[in-house]
């Protein structure tokens, strides 16, 4: 238990499911699943439905925002005195913050009456995609070197 952050197992699982669905529905925004026959696999046709995957992305983004808000409250009012962020934790928190920020900008841009310049639109989209790829690579590397914990207990 000492090596784990004090979140419940259900929280862990919901977070993993949330991030996985967001990663898949996010990648599905690129027209690759149909091109590479993945959407032809029975049961995966929805991966080529851009509207469906876009709405799915929005729904799970809302779940992620709720989870992160809950963790922030717990961190600042309860855990901060006993826990400190690990190096890998800090890196991933920074990447997550960037992903959330660019995602929120994208949601704002997609509202009626909102306009970003072509340059700004491109920066937001590329940053969102780039940060997600960086987070994925970071998570895999930290898992391989067995340093997955976001935070460790203070001595």
């Amino acid at each position: 238990m000492k090596n784990r952050t004090p979140v419940t197992r259900w929280f862990d699982r919901v977070f993993v499911v949330c991030c996985s669905v967001l990663a898949i529905s996010g990648l599905a925004q690129m027209p690759i699943f149909k091109r590479y026959y993945i959407a032809d696999i029975p049961g995966l046709g929805w991966l080529a439905d851009f509207y469906f995957t876009h709405k799915t992305h929005y729904i799970f983004a809302a779940f992620l925002l709720a989870l992160l808000a809950q963790v922030l409250v717990l961190w600042f009012f309860r855990w901060r005195t006993d826990l400190k962020l690990s190096g890998g934790g800090m890196l991933r928190v920074g990447l997550l913050a960037g992903i959330v920020f660019t995602g929120i900008l994208r949601m704002i841009k997609n509202q009626p009456g909102m306009s970003f310049s072509p340059g700004m639109t491109m920066i937001v989209d590329w940053a969102h995609l780039g940060l997600v790829l960086l987070l994925g690579v970071t998570a895999v590397i930290l898992a391989m070197v067995k340093r997955r914990a976001y935070a460790t207990w203070k001595k």
């Binding site: 509207y51 876009h54 709405k55 929005y58 729904i59 983004a61 809302a62 779940f63 925002l65 709720a66 989870l67 992160l68 808000a69 809950q70 963790v71 922030l72 409250v73 717990l74 009012f77 309860r78 929120i104 949601m107 704002i108 997609n110 509202q111 009626p112």
Partner: peptide, 24 residues
């Protein structure tokens, strides 16, 4: 649908904060 879901995303952090506060 996305326009409505964006509104839900505004409420989601509020729900998260409430869950955190209630948990504490």
């Amino acid at each position: 649908d996305e326009e409505n879901l964006a509104m839900a995303s505004v409420l989601a952090p509020v729900a998260g904060v409430a869950a955190g506060v209630l948990g504490i």
